[in-house]
Design a protein around this nucleic acid. Structure first.
Lengths: 131, 131
DNA sequence: ATATATGCGATAATAATTGTCGTATATAAT
DNA sequence: ATTATATACGACAATTATTATCGCATATAT
């Protein structure tokens, strides 16, 4: 439990790679080959990051991805939520419709813990991944 | 991602219930009925907590579980690790044998983040669940 | 034109989680 | 002694989430 997904892992590796190659356009195939990441899944992940303007994409030969200037200011929480939706150790933090809600006796402490985790991720940026 | 499991959720609910009923022996069926938790899965979870001396078990009619005095001093991290093994957002924090290790470019920052999460859970105890 | 690259949806394969079943053992009460 | 109630424990089934693959479309540099 409490694991990050491969999708996020791959995305973090890619972000760091792009940060180290800011002067070049890097195609997906370069990154997937360098780190042994399945190409298609990485491609789709980077597409999502591009549509969120965290990276820029250029099509065609000699195309690829590059990071945007704002990338260093993106918090890990924002990054995670772009790829995986709301950060929550239990779904009831965001979602309603839990059958047990009326009898649930741990909602308040769970929410506090969740606040702490979100706070942790809100105080780290993608720049911290490159250190 | 970053979810706690139902097993842990059920265990936390049970611990809080037992804390609120410290004077009685509470059978599994009481807890499972009160919160709509499948009995067998809760039973096995409480057995694990009993074998770790976090709660005490008494067999036979009028038997059941009660918390031990040390329960308030058990950290959430210990609790999680009893039920789910090592707390780590990526397996490579504890395990070796990652194919990508030689080329991995995010190991250091991931480990720092993991330290932070473990630190968070090491500074909360089961007593904090009852507040 | 062609080769190379991203964009996107559908679906398959795998793994992890969650839940169920059966049986054994202990013990209080009758 | 017998019965009813409770924990102990292993094997297995069902469900869900994650991970990976496939096919086709679009853009563009050469």
């Amino acid at each position: 439990m409490l694991k990050i997904t491969k999708k996020v892992e791959y995305a973090l590796i890619a972000i760091r790679h792009l940060q180290e190659n800011q002067d070049n356009l890097v195609p997906v195939s370069d990154i997937s080959a360098s780190y042994g990441i399945p190409k298609e899944i990485l491609a789709k992940t980077l597409q999502k990051l591009a549509s969120s303007n965290i990276i820029e994409s250029y099509k065609g030969p000699a195309g690829g991805y590059k990071i945007t200037k704002k990338v260093a200011k993106i918090t890990l929480n924002d990054f995670f939520e772009i790829l995986e939706g709301p950060t929550a150790i239990m779904d009831c933090y965001f979602q309603d419709g839990c059958d047990h809600l009326n009898s649930c006796n741990i909602r308040t402490p769970i929410n506090k813990i969740n606040d702490s985790i979100r706070n942790l991720f809100n105080n780290l940026t993608l720049a911290d991944i490159s250190q």
